[in-house]
């Protein structure tokens, strides 16, 4: 059978020769190795100042998307909740009233949309299930907190910033989403459905 990798090394079981038996020379060899590492480039990343770039397929906290005019895309169809294997998503639908067209994109919208981040396993199935391009996984993760309650994220926490009031934040978040879409072509296929 061939070895899976070429890195396997045979263990040398020959009896020790005199130089190895007095042990001192081997100590000096070992100390040479540690000294070599002493002058090597360090691998530490200084975390709060310096951050490692996330992988483009990283699955972090969910984001509820808006369209270009700042209207929420979610129609509370419940497909994400059905797809969710951890049953972390709950929502309540509501009918759009006249005069709310600038807030919601279609006639029905989610009045309440909650994800329990303690249940969520960040599998990304909600993202794949959504026919309306409304939910995406982002590149952040849930920060630590003191209470369980605070891990139930509502719409305030999940919605992407409004392009009308916070254009810069929206552009930043949007850019991340677009990058993600470009990397996962199967996510974009739902866009044609609208």
């Amino acid at each position: 059978m061939d070895a899976l990798t070429q890195r396997a090394k045979l263990v040398d079981r020959r009896p020790m020769n005199w130089l190895e038996k007095i042990y001192l020379w081997e100590i000096f060899k070992g100390m040479g190795i540690t000294l070599k590492h002493f002058f090597k480039k360090k691998v530490t990343i200084q975390y709060p100042e310096e951050k490692r770039p996330f992988s483009p397929v990283f699955r972090g906290l969910q984001v509820l998307n808006r369209d270009e005019e700042g209207r929420e895309r979610c129609t509370a169809c419940g497909l994400c909740a059905v797809a969710c294997p951890a049953e972390a998503i709950t929502m309540e639908g509501a009918e759009r009233l006249p005069g709310e067209e600038h807030l919601y994109r279609e006639e029905k919208y989610a009045a309440k949309y909650e994800i329990n981040m303690l249940r969520c396993i960040f599998c990304g199935l909600c993202e794949e299930a959504c026919p309306k391009d409304a939910i995406y996984l982002s590149e952040t993760f849930a920060p630590a907190n003191y209470s369980r309650k605070s891990f139930i994220y509502g719409k305030d926490d999940l919605l992407i910033p409004d392009p009308a009031t916070q254009p810069e934040e929206y552009a930043a978040a949007k850019g991340l989403l677009d990058k993600r879409k470009n990397h996962n072509p199967d996510l974009t296929k739902t866009n044609e459905l609208k």
Binding site: T34, L35, H37, F38, K40, K41, K42, V43, T44, Q46
Partner: peptide
């Protein structure tokens, strides 16, 4: 510090 440097840390 020495421990860190010998283990490729800071």
């Amino acid at each position: 510090k020495v421990a860190g440097f010998m283990q490729d840390r800071l």
